[in-house]
């Protein structure tokens, strides 16, 4: 019965590297370049997983634990997160709070691993990552809370189960508010353009990339993989919100979810092509805006 839910993490592990590939293709198309092949992230992963690692003498087990914990945590998240309209493997009241805390756990270990190297640049990246996290988390939690009140369900599977055009009905503004908040979250958590530039390699302006500079080989492969998985996880929140209805057939629903994710990846590519990165000082303002949208959605469910 819940077999489809158990398959979700495996599906995500296998398919998630497609998402950065799609984003890069779209960006290449906009820039009029040939661009890397669609499967380039897979080639990179295979290459990285075959390498042997070199560890600095100043690092401890914390440094090695970072990427592993991150990947493990994201796989765990996929057990409680429904793929579009396909219910998740595990669902219990309040699992949306577990989702938020699992994401925080992953971030915590990434930051610890960055600090463990003792590099000043990585410390800067860690500081920025946490500064923005402070603004992003209220948006996520309040947004999920609004969704829970709106759908009258207390688990993620229940929340996403019966969202459909018929249910949207009179609360279209609510849907728009939540979708825009989740889109900003998706871009922030994945370090995409209005917040962070994934292609820059200048330590002064990077946020996420700078935290992983000292990781290599298998560890770095895990980090790339986890980044792709994070695109998947945050994307699912957005896709689940706007996907019209369940077909009743699990395979088709899962397919719709994956297609939706690819659509979000294309959208990300378009946003990255037509927008510039915000100044670092303006980013909190954007995130406060997302939190405000979530809070407004929550308020609207109370009347």
């Amino acid at each position: 019965m819940r077999l489809a839910g158990w398959l979700h993490p495996i599906l995500a592990l296998l398919l998630s590297p497609l998402l950065p590939g799609v984003i890069n293709r779209v960006k290449a198309f906009f820039a009029g370049r040939q661009g890397p092949p669609l499967l380039q992230p897979y080639y990179d992963l295979i290459k990285l997983l075959q390498k042997g690692a070199v560890y600095s003498g100043t690092t401890t087990w914390v440094f090695r634990a970072g990427p592993v914990v991150n990947l493990a945590v994201l796989s765990l998240v996929l057990l409680i997160l429904p793929l579009g309209r396909v219910p998740s493997a595990v669902a219990f009241p309040g699992d949306l709070i577990l989702l938020a805390y699992l994401l925080v756990l992953g971030r915590f270990f990434t930051v610890l691993a960055a600090l463990d190297t003792g590099s000043s640049f990585e410390g800067m990246g860690a500081s920025r990552e946490l500064q923005f996290a402070v603004f992003a988390e209220p948006a996520l939690l309040v947004g999920l809370g609004a969704l829970a009140r709106w759908t009258n369900a207390s688990s993620l599977s229940g929340m996403f189960a019966d969202l459909s055009p018929a249910f949207w009905g009179d609360s279209l503004p609510l849907l728009v508010l939540l979708a825009s908040a989740f889109l900003v979250l998706y871009l922030t958590e994945n370090c995409r353009i209005p917040v962070d530039d994934p292609t820059t390699h200048l330590e002064l302006t990077m946020i996420h990339e700078v935290m992983v500079l000292d990781h290599g080989a298998v560890d770095f492969g895990f980090i790339q993989w986890a980044a792709a998985m994070k695109l998947w996880v945050l994307g699912i929140l957005l896709v689940g919100l706007v996907l019209p209805g369940a077909s009743g057939w699990r395979g088709l629903d899962a397919l719709a979810g994956v297609v939706g994710l690819l659509g979000v990846a294309v959208l990300t590519g378009v946003i990255e092509s037509i927008m510039a990165r915000l100044r670092l000082l303006r980013v909190p303002q954007l995130l406060v805006g997302a939190s405000v949208a979530s809070a407004l959605a929550l308020l609207l469910t109370f009347r």
Partner: peptide, 14 residues
């Protein structure tokens, strides 16, 4: 009609 009014009012809030 209520939905239209509500949408405009929420736009005002924003």
């Amino acid at each position: 009609m209520t939905s239209g009014i509500d949408s405009l009012l929420i736009l005002l809030i924003l």
